[in-house]
Design a protein around this nucleic acid. Structure first.
Length: 420
RNA sequence: GGACAGAUGGGUGAGUGGCUGAAACCAACGGAUUGCUAAUCCGUCGUACUUCGUAAGAGGUACCGAGGGUUCGAAUCCCUCUCUGUCCGCCA
């Protein structure tokens, strides 16, 4: 949600920023709506004042005067009702426009149309050299009988998978490594949040009103979370935090549910793109002046997992056209996937500025008053894709898979996954 | 799912039609004082919007879970909804 005052004060700048997202200018329209809104509001407030003044004379009036006063108030009330109706209409219109506009890109963000314009920040690690043709994770998994897409299709349809045996355990091990790292080493508070949320929460983080097509909805009118970002960030929905409780850092391991409505035909093989996947999420709520450095810190928390797993990856700064709705700046972390000979997104870390906080009404109290927080979120990391990366990067010629050293304790001492 | 009770400012909580944007206490903040890890005293202390003003500031409107209604006038009366608590039923 945008600050209407900012649009009032800097309309050209606002439209210019929207243009980076390939959107038409709207400040003119918003400002003129806002202007008539305030005119109506002022007259309605004056009328209310008048009504209040008249009413206060009522008790000390005689009967003739009383009926006169009643009539007067009745007329005023009619006027107020009309104004309020108009006000409501305009307000809704403004709100709809404002809540459908994405966040404005930060000045660091490269201008561009899509992922081709993303900026490579750095590449870390060495891609493994195989003396055989590396298999894809789904081939390895099916050969090991630890990934079952066929049965999942029968039971649940496309884009689902059964993980079994050591793969199921590996997924749990990966998540535990991530959670332990983020809580013990980086000070995040572990949370086990609700996986179903109401409209207001989905609105707060920006999934609604524009992206309902991407979400699963229950028959109780709940939304299945597409990411733990939603319930974690909304821990601050309609709250005013104390300054001393900041920064607030939360991490959670949850399933994520996505309809993938717009990606028919993409990544249909394997478990790159599923309707349900698990992810360890990082969320920070910080004072405005700290959000830039918090983004760098968060990025570092996420990459440290890949470092400890000895997986190679690269960091991309997303271009203005490739960023998500709520973000003003986003880093993607992409891990090396040998079977595809390319890097694939495994984490996305975003600074949302006060964009979500305005929608959620999430503030903190300080000497200067109550101020909107800045919110950040990042995957730390996508667990399913981490499993893919491990399976493919650590595969051996015989189809077995070495377990990265750091995960061995989490696998009960097991060092290799192979056909039983 | 059934029955009853409740929802007031950061917290506890008073308030059943006009004198209530809201007592009191606690917390917080500012100050004073006392030589003893604190006490006492004084003061300040909700939010949003808006009008006037260069500004400091001065006015106004709205908000007592949400939305409707009654009334000249609603935190207070009525209706609907949401949430919370307790008991019963069911249940991982």
């Amino acid at each position: 949600m945008h600050d209407i005052n900012f649009i009032r004060n800097y309309p050209e700048e606002f439209d210019k920023s929207l243009q980076l997202r390939f959107l038409d200018p709207v400040s003119n329209k918003i400002i003129s709506l806002d202007k008539s809104k305030r005119e109506i509001l002022t007259s309605s407030q004056e009328l209310r004042f008048k009504r209040k003044t008249i009413s206060s004379q009522f008790a000390k009036s005689d009967d003739v005067e009383k009926s006169k006063l009643q009539e007067e108030v009745r007329l005023i009330k009619e006027k107020i009702d009309n104004l309020e109706n108009e006000l409501l209409k305009i307000d809704n219109e403004i709100h709809l426009i404002l809540s459908s506009l994405p966040n404005l890109p930060d000045q660091d963000v490269p201008q561009g149309k899509d992922e081709d314009d993303n900026l490579l920040i750095k590449t870390v690690g060495e891609n493994p050299a195989f003396d055989f043709k590396p298999l894809a994770h789904y081939e390895l998994g099916e050969n090991l009988k630890m990934m079952d897409f066929d049965q999942a299709a029968k039971v649940s349809g496309a884009r689902f998978v059964y993980l079994k045996n050591d793969f199921a355990k590996l997924e749990r091990a990966i998540a535990n490594l991530m959670l332990d790292t983020h809580t013990n080493k980086f000070g995040y508070t572990e949370v086990n949040p609700p996986n179903l949320v109401k409209d207001s929460a989905a609105y707060g983080t920006g999934q609604l009103p524009k992206f309902s097509d991407d979400l699963f909805k229950t028959n109780s009118d709940h939304w299945l979370i597409p990411t733990a970002e939603v319930p974690l960030t909304n821990l601050h929905l309609e709250t005013t935090a104390n300054e001393k409780d900041l920064p607030a850092r939360y991490t959670a391991w949850t399933p994520c549910y996505r309809l993938e409505a717009g990606s028919a035909g993409r990544d249909t093989r394997g478990m790159i793109r599923q309707h349900q996947f698990s992810k360890v999420e990082l969320v920070s709520l910080v004072k405005p002046e700290n959000s830039n450095e918090e983004l760098e810190r968060m990025l570092n928390c996420a990459t440290s997992i890949l470092d400890s797993l000895k997986l190679s990856y690269r960091i991309m700064l997303l271009s203005s056209g490739d960023m998500g709705f709520s973000a003003n700046k986003t880093y993607d972390i992409e891990v090396w996937v040998p079977s595809e000979s390319k890097y694939r997104e495994i984490s996305s870390c975003s600074n949302c500025g006060d964009f979500q906080a305005r929608r959620m009404n999430a503030k903190y109290k300080c000497n200067d008053g109550n101020i909107f927080l800045h919110t950040l979120n990042g995957s730390g990391l996508a667990v399913g894709r981490t499993l893919i990366a491990i399976v493919e990067n650590y595969q051996n010629k015989d189809g077995s898979i070495d377990i990265p050293d750091v995960l061995v304790p989490y696998m009960g001492g097991k060092k290799i996954i192979s056909l039983k």
